[in-house]
Measured scan of single mutants.
Amino acid sequence: GHYRIRINGREFEIRGISEEEIRHLEEALRNGADEKILKEIVDRLRG
């Protein structure tokens, strides 16, 4: 998958993330885990 997200007015492209991972992120966001989720995304993109 290849997705664009906007955070604090800046747009980011996220590549190589699966539909299942996105559902997991959405679930966590609904549970209020904003900073933790951003850290997970950044860590994943770093490799």
Score class of each variant (00 low, 15 high):
1 G>Y: 05
1 G>K: 07
1 G>S: 03
2 H>C: 15
2 H>T: 05
4 R>G: 03
4 R>M: 10
5 I>F: 03
5 I>E: 02
5 I>A: 01
5 I>Q: 00
6 R>K: 12
7 I>T: 01
8 N>I: 01
8 N>K: 02
8 N>W: 03
9 G>S: 02
10 R>V: 15
10 R>L: 15
11 E>V: 08
12 F>N: 00
12 F>W: 09
12 F>S: 00
12 F>A: 00
13 E>H: 09
13 E>I: 14
13 E>T: 04
13 E>P: 01
14 I>P: 00
14 I>Q: 00
14 I>T: 01
14 I>H: 00
15 R>K: 12
16 G>K: 02
16 G>C: 09
16 G>L: 08
17 I>E: 01
17 I>L: 08
17 I>S: 03
17 I>Q: 02
17 I>P: 02
18 S>F: 02
18 S>T: 12
18 S>N: 06
18 S>A: 06
18 S>M: 04
19 E>L: 11
20 E>H: 11
20 E>N: 09
20 E>G: 07
21 E>C: 13
21 E>K: 03
21 E>D: 14
21 E>T: 07
21 E>R: 02
22 I>L: 07
22 I>N: 01
23 R>N: 09
23 R>H: 10
24 H>N: 12
24 H>R: 11
25 L>R: 00
25 L>H: 00
25 L>N: 00
26 E>I: 07
26 E>M: 08
26 E>V: 08
28 A>Q: 10
28 A>L: 15
29 L>W: 04
29 L>S: 03
30 R>H: 09
30 R>G: 08
30 R>L: 10
30 R>N: 09
31 N>K: 11
31 N>W: 06
32 G>P: 03
32 G>Y: 07
33 A>E: 09
34 D>P: 14
35 E>F: 10
35 E>T: 09
35 E>W: 12
35 E>A: 12
36 K>E: 10
36 K>I: 11
36 K>W: 08
36 K>P: 04
36 K>Y: 13
38 L>M: 10
38 L>P: 01
39 K>S: 11
39 K>R: 14
40 E>Q: 12
42 V>E: 04
42 V>F: 12
42 V>A: 05
43 D>W: 01
43 D>T: 06
43 D>C: 13
43 D>I: 08
43 D>L: 05
43 D>H: 10
43 D>G: 07
44 R>P: 02
44 R>T: 11
45 L>F: 08
46 R>N: 15
46 R>P: 05
47 G>A: 14
